[in-house]
Design a binder for these strands. Structure first.
Lengths: 159, 159
DNA sequence: GCGATCTTCATGCGTTTGCATCTACCTTAA
DNA sequence: TTAAGGTAGATGCAAACGCATGAAGATCGC
């Protein structure tokens, strides 16, 4: 691999990081969250995307949080009545997490307002083509990040 | 604005978020960080990019952390001898933050290893063209996020 | 079928974070 | 010049986090 290709990769990643931090701050500053932290909302949103209850470790894949921290965050949301922990009938170790009606309603309410802010920010900055590019790029990067080290080894062996 | 353009904007943002979380986990799992947390490294890296000492609030722009948390993080790094807090001669309220030689050396050491991991992940996922697109898109999004609400109002009034 | 190992989630504990607030300093204007 | 308001950073304190570890169920090999 050429040195400049590595450099471009690092510049692209830094650009993504900067955009992420910058927009996250902007979104966090909007007065739409009510009693929810963005992390809590993230959990509710992730659950709302799936029809079937999620396992804790599945939820953990999407959230940037340690397993114990996520476990306790879920605790707190359950205590507030926004989701339910149900023992998994097929795996005695596991829990299934499902939004309650209150949780679903809360996600919709906050999510609707948040989506407006996201649309405002992103459409103001990017063309339609760029939005499409970003979505495709994000998808590829996420797939790369999700690959296990073993999978990456196989992938590199092919190159 | 059309409904579908808003929807695409949200999909693009979600894609960025997923990529961010996924790759951050991967990078965090790499055994290259030594005694540094990624947030601490982020501060050292930001300082290393600038020749002149940074003010605390300038540092805060790039870091996703509250002002008090950043203040204390800087405290700890200063106690460990990785950076220096110097009272700003031009503003009695402020501090100037500069890497010590030890801090600069530590950033280089860890940063070099980290850059290798970033390059591996990003080049494996993206073409050169996509990397260029991502860098441009990130730049535009960051500029949008950094704009003050007043600036955004003016911007929207023009549309 | 049974011990060894792995996986999933919870818990103890020290550290770090965010919110609210405080102090000190700068800026503006009368 | 000085009072009013704004900005930079520090600090008290409760909440949340990460690391290490534990308990309990699943899975694999012999």
């Amino acid at each position: 691999m050429t040195r400049s290709r590595s450099r471009r990769a690092n510049e692209a990643w830094e650009s993504l990081l900067t955009a992420h931090a910058s927009l996250m701050k902007r979104f966090a500053a909007e007065p739409i969250w009510g009693e929810l932290s963005m992390r809590e909302y993230d959990v509710l949103y992730t659950l709302s995307k799936h029809d079937e209850p999620l396992r804790l470790f599945e939820l953990g894949r999407g959230v940037l949080l340690s397993q114990p921290a996520l476990s306790r965050l879920v605790d707190r949301l359950a205590e507030r009545g926004l989701l339910e922990r149900i023992p998994d009938p097929e795996d005695g170790r596991g829990v299934r997490l499902a939004l309650t009606e209150a949780g679903r309603e809360r996600q919709r309410r906050v999510g609707g307002r948040h989506a407006v802010g996201v649309a405002r920010a992103v459409t103001a900055a990017l063309t339609d083509e760029e939005m499409a590019q970003l979505e495709a790029i994000g998808r590829k990067l996420a797939a790369q990040g999700a690959a296990t080290p073993a999978q990456r080894n196989r992938q590199e062996a092919v190159l």
